[in-house]
Simulated scan of single mutants.
Amino acid sequence: MFGLGTTELIIILVLVLVIFGAGKLPEIGGALGKGIRSFKKGISDRDEIDITPEENAKKPEDKEGEKQ
């Protein structure tokens, strides 16, 4: 996992615990989880916007012609 061993992960966890405190850890974890979920959803949604005009779409000029 990113070239980090068990010792490095424990040191990082202890530093986060000291900096943010035990009360903020659930909030940080939840925000991190939501961010990762949103990122994965954005990556998996590869739907592109279709900007080609539709054949049946009426142009504004056509609407003016209908009024006369």
Rank of each mutant, 00 (worst) to 15 (best):
D50H: 02
I36H: 06
G65D: 15
K41E: 12
G30C: 03
E48L: 14
N56L: 05
G42F: 12
E66I: 10
R46C: 14
E54Y: 02
D50E: 05
K40D: 12
E61P: 03
K40L: 15
G42E: 11
L32P: 00
G42H: 06
K59F: 09
E66A: 04
S44Q: 15
K41S: 15
D62Q: 12
E27H: 14
D45W: 11
K63L: 13
K41N: 10
K63S: 02
P60W: 02
R37D: 07
K40I: 15
P53K: 03
E66K: 11
K63C: 04
G33T: 10
D45Y: 09
T52K: 10
K58R: 12
E61I: 03
D50Q: 02
E54A: 14
D45E: 15
A57R: 04
R37G: 01
E61Y: 00
S44P: 10
R46T: 15
S38A: 09
E54N: 10
D45C: 10
P53F: 12
A57N: 10
E55G: 01
A57K: 08
A57I: 08
D50T: 00
K34Q: 15
G65N: 13
G35C: 00
K34L: 06
G33I: 01
E64W: 07
K34T: 07
I36L: 12
D62W: 03
D45K: 12
R46V: 15
I28L: 00
K34M: 07
K59I: 13
K63G: 02
F39Q: 05
D50P: 00
F39V: 03
I36P: 00
F39S: 07
G35E: 05
E61G: 01
K41T: 09
E27I: 12
I49M: 13
R46D: 11
G65S: 11
E66D: 10
K58W: 01
R46F: 14
K58L: 05
E66W: 07
G65C: 04
P53Q: 02
S38W: 14
D62G: 06
I43L: 11
D45G: 03
I49R: 13
K41Y: 01
K34P: 04
E64K: 14
I51Q: 14
E61T: 01
G33A: 12
K34E: 05
K41C: 09
G35S: 02
A31W: 08
G42L: 08
I51H: 07
I43V: 15
E66Q: 11
G30V: 00
K58S: 09
N56E: 10
I28V: 01
E61V: 06
N56W: 04
E55T: 03
E66S: 07
E61K: 01
S44R: 14
T52M: 04
G29R: 07
G35N: 04
D50I: 00
K63H: 03
G65R: 08
S38Q: 15
K40Y: 14
E54T: 11
G29F: 05
K63M: 09
E54L: 07
E54M: 08
K40S: 14
A57V: 02
P60I: 02
K58T: 03
D62H: 12
T52C: 09
S44I: 15
S44E: 15
E48V: 15
L32T: 03
